[in-house]
Design a protein around this nucleic acid. Structure first.
Length: 459
RNA sequence: GGCGCGAUAGCAAAGCGGUUAUGCAGCGGAUUGCAAAUCCGUUUAGCCCAGUUCGACUCUGGGUCGCGCCUCCA
């Protein structure tokens, strides 16, 4: 039985979908005005694994991950670049897809863009206004009246009084209450027509929180199973989503809220504002994408994850061990059989709030068995279980010999050197054989002699 | 100030009230011409102080330290 840590309950709970065999899941995706960084990579990989595990468990999953393509930062960046909003966002949507594909992240079933759901958002504002939860302020903005919604704070565990004590909320005299948030922003005279939509409250554009509420209910219904995102979205974004959706629809919005932990650099949150971020494509120049995916899945999704080259090197070494086991024994393609000891341990780990760290430990035990017994069925099990996590699906040789940098030895040169070393060994000229091996090692090539000849991999 | 999370061996990172986590690194052995890879064995743990218990890294309370949210953020 799958258990999920539900932020709403602050506890692990047994997962019971609304429809017995179906799971409807929404994850907050990217605001597309720049390249994705490692923090974005974590959300994508973590919820990709959630989605994969739900499917592996037999559920019919509908997975939605939105794209925010209208927002203050996008408008600002487009103006700086002197390009249209559309050109800017399309460019970074394409880049995001490249990054996600490289990391083995499967495409969600739907990737709704905010600008394509403006009518649904306006309907929602109208419904909120009708329910007495929204009002148009003097400046033209339509705001959400937070104090009129009873459950405000139930997700983040904050009370309105506590928030007030924080004194960090900017005072805006147009709001009835400083904690009210914007549903519909009135158009400014200097803003391009591209960022203005007509509405009964005048020209304007949606507030950030509104899109997820509107797109979620449009694609998954007013009440769905799982909503995920980074821990920094818990408040205010997800809290506001609940206020909007439940305030408009008068029913429970989401049953299970999941939040992944941050990627850190030097023990600090990786973020745009701190400027301490590494883009995915930057990291992929140096490390294999599967190594990055493995690095992310090595930690539990709610734990902090420290980024450094040393940690990536460590992940690379660990993944190399798994591929090395598969190199020695051919694994025929096989569906996962869930009756074996390893498979059951793996399943228990994944069912325990997606404990990928534990699941990977099972993979290493299985790799030991493969190395020990050279059993093709054990190798097949290793490959199929890893496949559930989106790992180990490549040809081992390709992984182990991949990553040649520019200027390095190519395969032909390596093989030629190996041939001459074998010739030297035949004449017992070990000094020459060792010299060749040393030269190769200095070029980043590790030789492994086996009874059947020599193989190589990149260090 | 309010709310929340965490502290595990040299590094990284899990489970668990009593029995080997796991990966890397180290040490000993097997194997090898020597290595590498692999296998076998093995050294390093559980922030501090109390309490509960026959027994706590694991539960409870109190400290200390770190991190996050309260403002855009995955």
């Amino acid at each position: 039985m799958l258990k999920i840590y539900n932020t709403l309950a602050r506890d692990k709970q047994e997962f019971r979908p609304i429809d017995v065999s179906k799971v409807r899941m929404y994850v907050c995706g990217m605001t597309v005005y720049d390249y994705c960084h490692l923090g974005h990579a974590r959300v994508m990989v973590v919820f990709d694994v959630v989605q994969r595990w739900l499917r592996a468990s037999g559920y019919d999953v509908t997975y939605v991950r939105n794209i925010t393509d209208i927002d203050d930062k996008i408008i600002k960046r487009a103006a700086e670049n002197r390009e249209s909003i559309h050109a800017l966002t399309q460019r970074f949507i394409d880049a995001m897809h490249e990054d996600a594909d490289a990391l083995g992240v499967q495409r969600p079933d739907h990737e709704p863009r905010a600008t394509q759901y403006i009518p649904q958002m306006l309907d929602m504002v109208a419904q909120l206004e009708q329910n007495g939860l929204a009002y148009q302020a003097a400046d033209g903005d339509v705001n959400y009246a937070v104090r009129k919604f009873d459950g405000y704070g139930k997700l983040s565990g904050k009370s309105l009084e506590d928030l007030r004590a924080g004194e960090r909320v900017e005072v805006d005299s147009n709001k009835h209450d400083p904690l009210d948030f914007v549903l519909w922003k009135h158009a400014r005279p200097d803003e391009a027509a591209e960022v203005q939509w007509d509405s009964k409250w005048g020209k304007g554009r949606p507030g950030w929180h509104l899109e997820c509420s509107a797109m979620g209910s449009e694609l998954l219904g007013k009440h769905f199973d799982i909503h995920g995102g980074g821990a920094d979205l818990q408040f205010p974004h997800h809290e506001n989503e609940i206020a909007q959706s439940e305030g408009a629809h008068q029913c429970q919005y989401v049953n299970y809220w999941m939040h992944n932990g941050f990627v850190r650099v030097d023990n600090e949150k990786m973020s745009k504002s701190l400027g301490n971020f590494f883009t995915i494509r930057e990291v992929l120049k140096k490390y294999d994408a599967e190594v990055v995916r493995f690095f992310i899945l090595r930690a539990h999704y709610r734990s902090p994850l420290n980024y450094s080259d040393a940690h990536l090197d460590d992940a690379k070494g660990a993944l190399t061990r798994l591929y090395t086991a598969l190199k020695s024994v051919t694994a025929q393609a096989a569906a996962v059989g869930w009756n074996g000891d390893y498979a059951l341990r793996f399943k228990d780990a994944m069912d325990d709030d997606f404990n990928t760290a534990e699941a990977l430990a099972v993979l290493f035990d299985l790799a030991n068995e493969v190395n020990r017994t050279q059993s093709p069925s054990a190798a097949a099990e290793l490959k199929s279980l890893a496949g559930v996590l989106g790992l180990l699906q490549r040809d081992p040789q390709e992984f182990l010999q991949g990553g040649a940098g520019a200027g390095g030895l190519d395969d032909a040169a390596i093989n030629a050197l190996i041939e001459s070393r074998i010739a030297a060994k035949k004449t017992k000229d070990f000094a020459e054989a060792d010299r060749i091996r040393k030269d190769l090692l200095e070029a980043g090539i590790v030789l492994e002699d086996t009874p059947n000849g020599s193989t190589w991999r990149r260090a």
